[in-house]
Design a protein around this nucleic acid. Structure first.
Length: 234
DNA sequence: GCGACAG
DNA sequence: ATCTTGTCGC
């Protein structure tokens, strides 16, 4: 029963949290996102972030991938107490803290950031990738494994535009044969066209692009350490 | 009002 | 996301 999950989660909202204020923040974020290509040339380092969860902790992971070799050069993780429940369209408010802390540990040498979630492919055009991109002021791309909103248009080879309220807000991209597509959208300081091109170049035989795939691995590795008592949850 | 809904 | 074994297909 999907309805039961909702009731329980909403009661776990922090006392200082207001969905109304969160919506206002998203409107502001949506108005500040830049969809123009402002990426450095040549691009050499790409960061990827992901978050894993246990009953009470959120494990944020940030990795650095060398481009175009796609070799992993650095990985940092951090475990924090989970303060927000997951609520569709408000993902950023749950994952921002652990993600931002992990990114801060990583350092700021990266020229592009890939996030595990949508950018403009969001009902308010202000997904997690937009919120994080604006926070760190770096070119950012959102990558999701499931479609949150919109409808997939006509395929052009390995990609198809996604329409929402009459506008193209992202793209479905096939990064691997016999695998369902991933959903790419602009986070900040990059165009959708460039986002699609780079996500494909950052993918190496797996469904997910290397920055996100490696961040996912790092998060789960730290999660096992936490379960083993070899890591503290702050 | 009903159903959908990133991770 | 998380809890979990085997299994179908390239």
């Amino acid at each position: 029963m999907p309805s039961r999950r909702w009731r329980v989660d909403r009661q776990k909202l922090p006392p200082n949290f207001s969905i109304k204020r969160a919506r206002l923040a998203q409107r502001l974020i949506a108005s500040r996102v830049v969809e123009e290509d402002l990426i450095e040339h040549p691009l050499r380092l790409v960061a990827g972030v992901d978050v894993a969860f246990t009953d009470n902790c959120s494990i944020g992971a940030a990795v650095l991938i060398e481009y175009p070799s796609l070799m992993l050069v650095k990985a940092k993780t951090v475990a924090t107490r989970t303060r927000m429940p997951y609520i569709p369209t408000l993902l950023a408010f749950r994952e921002m803290a652990p993600t931002y802390l992990a990114l801060r540990k990583l350092g700021g040498e990266y020229g592009l950031l890939l996030v595990d979630g949508n950018g403009r492919l969001h009902p308010y055009l202000a997904g997690f990738a937009c919120q994080l991109g604006l926070a760190v002021r770096k070119p950012t791309i959102g990558v999701a494994k499931k479609l949150l909103v919109g409808e997939v248009g006509e395929w052009n080879g390995d990609w198809a535009p996604i329409y929402y309220q009459g506008k193209v807000v992202g793209a479905a991209v096939k990064t691997r044969k016999n695998a369902k597509p991933i959903y790419v959208s602009v986070g900040h300081m990059i165009s959708l066209k460039t986002s699609i091109r780079l996500v494909k170049k950052l993918s190496k035989g797996y469904k997910l692009p290397e920055p996100i795939r490696q961040a996912h691995i790092a998060a789960n590795r730290a999660k096992s350490l936490l379960g083993r008592g070899e890591l503290e949850c702050i």
